[in-house]
Design a protein around this nucleic acid. Structure first.
Lengths: 411, 411
DNA sequence: GATAGTTCCGGGAAAGGTG
DNA sequence: CACCTTTCCCGGAACTATC
């Protein structure tokens, strides 16, 4: 506990003061100065962001955040007026300058005005915490930095700087406290949410602990990326059924656009930020992440139970689906995520052609919107040509518990 | 032309000045003072609202307005800084005070802040007009007056006051100019639009020309109401096919909730504001106006061509529809506006029961939303039991030109 | 606890900016 | 022109005030 450190500090100081006679004036002065420095740095590092602002932050949209001064209850000098904490947007550049220079420099210019950005630092006597609670903050507008080359606004990271000046009780020292939030991507419209999430995910997953704000690797081992995607997947879809080896292999083929390498080959490769969310997948209108995020969205919104049932193979390409189905009985089908449509779900099924040979058909993918009109289960029930879920589960057994309305409820 | 008046004024003044010797100093002074007054009132009445702000004004939504100073090009004294015109919200009470007191009193407190509400009065040398153009104004928030009794916020009228102080060229007199907009109902959400439109319609239609702001009759002759509804109907639906005697009779039965009176009886009646848009129609969840506005909306959005074709009887009650159809051949149908659902369109048709007797069926009304999913024409085509539009037009002839898609285009 | 009134905000549409 | 970025604003949902 932080407060224990302070106790140790004061005990030490007591001892030194007690021994002051023996130490001589010069040494004592130096010791006291050193004490001051230690206290200061202790105090400064006990000023923390308790509740981070959202890392994807939309302008004109309310958000919350709070900071906490751990040593406040112990050290804060009582004052007539409460100490006020201020929250300001800072650019990556400003954040870097703050991190490098130890002096308490003021910000030259603001990159975006935050409304209701000054709140009192309040000590709660019950819980013994000293917090400033930003309950009703809102970023009015964002001034973008000039970007180099192909950088998009959703790759731009900034942060919220919380700062205050307080007086400490024992020595009446005035200390300037400041702390930065995690990096934040500011967006102005929901259509930027996708890309902003990618930036944040990459940063959270791959940044070093004590980096200069907000540098992060440009390329990372594919294995790390897999872990990251898996964690994100489970958190986002809210499922305990995570991604498996086969899924990773499929994803690797997609992100590297390489259909000849083996799973082992991929394991040792590095994947770049550009491959993750800058380059358009060949022949598609979107990036790897945009596609993957679409999959998570549709799973979360409409297919969670089916995913948990294991009824969705999902991360399987058309060829693989074909190979799996071609030797199965008529009416065997499986569900895969559409490669061509974000958040689309396709049904591949085997049917007997006129000449009596088996062939695999793909149904036009259902979008998330389609599924909100009529659920997947019901749509599968509607389709008479579907009989058994791959490998061989009768469809009413696999989906029966999720059938809803007899027919569509639209007028 | 206003400017001609000014010329006459100056000629008169010249003559008086020329005759000054003959008039004697006292009379001259009185005459000059009178001249001043005349000029002043002339100038003041030449300051007009050129473009009215919307009479239903939503907060946080941009709007436009402009004022024009007719005598500006002739009389305005050139100045280094342009004259600024200010736009402010005033309550009905404030408007009344402004209208009564001739002095240029300032407003005590604002009822709502308008952003970008000060713009320059600019003389355009080409067109010779002197205007202040409010291009980007927005009402931030509205402070409602305390209302008496059952008055709702959408019955509250306010206005925009435009004001400025200018110096006139000949005599360097400084004049304070002000002009009020038409009354305005402020809303904060689209769901108040309905009721606000009712207030504005009533006010525009039934207010006297030189009234105290913004008093208006509480009840008016039904005949006047009919004219008003008809004008509104044609303007809103954008049709030249206005309302007819039969329609008025149907509407009168609805608004007066009187099904025994004759059309002539109604002609001499008065209708009250409460009947128009305060009282709920018996057994329904809405007022007369809300119902009527819903009809106009659905006609405007989805049924304009059919209305113009005369294919929609519309303002007909269930009983009348029954009587019209009962002796017609099987499959004869007509279209009427649903009494129970705002903006709903019902089809009534005649069919032969099992016992061989005719009976009239009513199809569950289509809402505006239904019609935006699949158009009326297509829906009529879909319904096999419909054959001839009343009195006896084959349905493909009446609606064929508006058939669209073979089947619904939803997934 | 129903109704009236308001705020919040997702997302479509379209405008604005930039190569 | 196409694409990126932003603004505008409708209308559902949720919250608040008021009786």
């Amino acid at each position: 506990r932080c407060e224990n450190l302070v106790e140790v500090y004061f005990q030490l100081q007591q001892q030194v003061m007690g021994a002051s006679a023996e130490l001589g004036p010069e040494l004592l002065a130096r010791l006291l100065e050193r004490f001051n420095e230690v206290l200061c740095s202790l105090v400064k590092s006990s000023f923390l962001v308790e509740k981070q602002p959202p890392q994807v932050l939309k302008t004109q949209t309310k958000f919350q955040a709070s900071v906490r001064f751990l040593l406040g209850p112990r050290l804060l000098k009582a004052a007539a007026k409460p100490y006020m904490v201020r929250a300001e947007m800072v650019t990556e550049k400003q954040a870097r300058e703050l991190a490098l220079s130890t002096c308490s420099n003021t910000l030259s210019e603001s990159t975006g005005e935050i409304m209701h950005n000054v709140v009192a630092l309040e000590t709660n006597p019950t819980s013994g915490t000293c917090c400033a609670n930003f309950k009703n903050v809102l970023l009015k507008k964002i001034k973008r930095c000039e970007r180099k080359g192909s950088e998009s606004v959703t790759e731009e990271k900034c942060a919220v700087l919380f700062s205050t000046t307080v007086a400490l009780a024992p020595s009446n020292i005035s200390v300037y406290l400041q702390v930065l939030s995690l990096p934040i991507v500011v967006i102005v419209h929901g259509n930027q949410d996708n890309n902003a999430k990618a930036t944040v995910l990459w940063d959270n997953a791959f940044s070093e602990i004590d980096r200069v704000p907000f540098v992060v690797a440009e390329r990372v081992p594919w294995e790390k990326m897999c872990d990251t995607l898996n964690l994100k997947f489970m958190a986002e879809v809210q499922t305990s059924k995570g991604l498996l080896k086969e899924h990773y292999f499929f994803l690797a083929q997609k992100i590297f656009n390489d259909h000849s390498a083996s799973p082992e080959d991929f394991q040792s490769r590095n994947v770049s930020w550009a491959q993750f969310n800058k380059e358009i997948l060949p022949g598609r209108g979107f990036t790897f992440w945009q596609w993957f995020d679409g999959v998570m969205e549709v799973l979360k919104k409409h297919l969670k139970p089916h995913w948990n049932d294991g009824a969705i193979l999902g991360f399987v390409n058309k060829q693989q689906a074909h190979d799996l189905l071609i030797n199965k009985p008529d009416g065997t089908f499986l569900l895969r995520f559409s490669d061509s449509e974000i958040g689309g779900v396709t049904i591949a099924y085997v049917t007997r052609g006129k000449d009596g040979s088996s062939q695999v058909e793909n149904i036009q993918p259902f979008s998330a919107k389609d599924l909100s009109i009529r659920s997947l289960g019901d749509r599968i029930r509607d389709l008479g040509q579907l009989r058994n879920l791959y490998p061989n589960i009768p469809k009413d057994q696999a989906f029966g518990s999720h059938y809803n309305s007899e027919r569509g409820e639209l007028g």
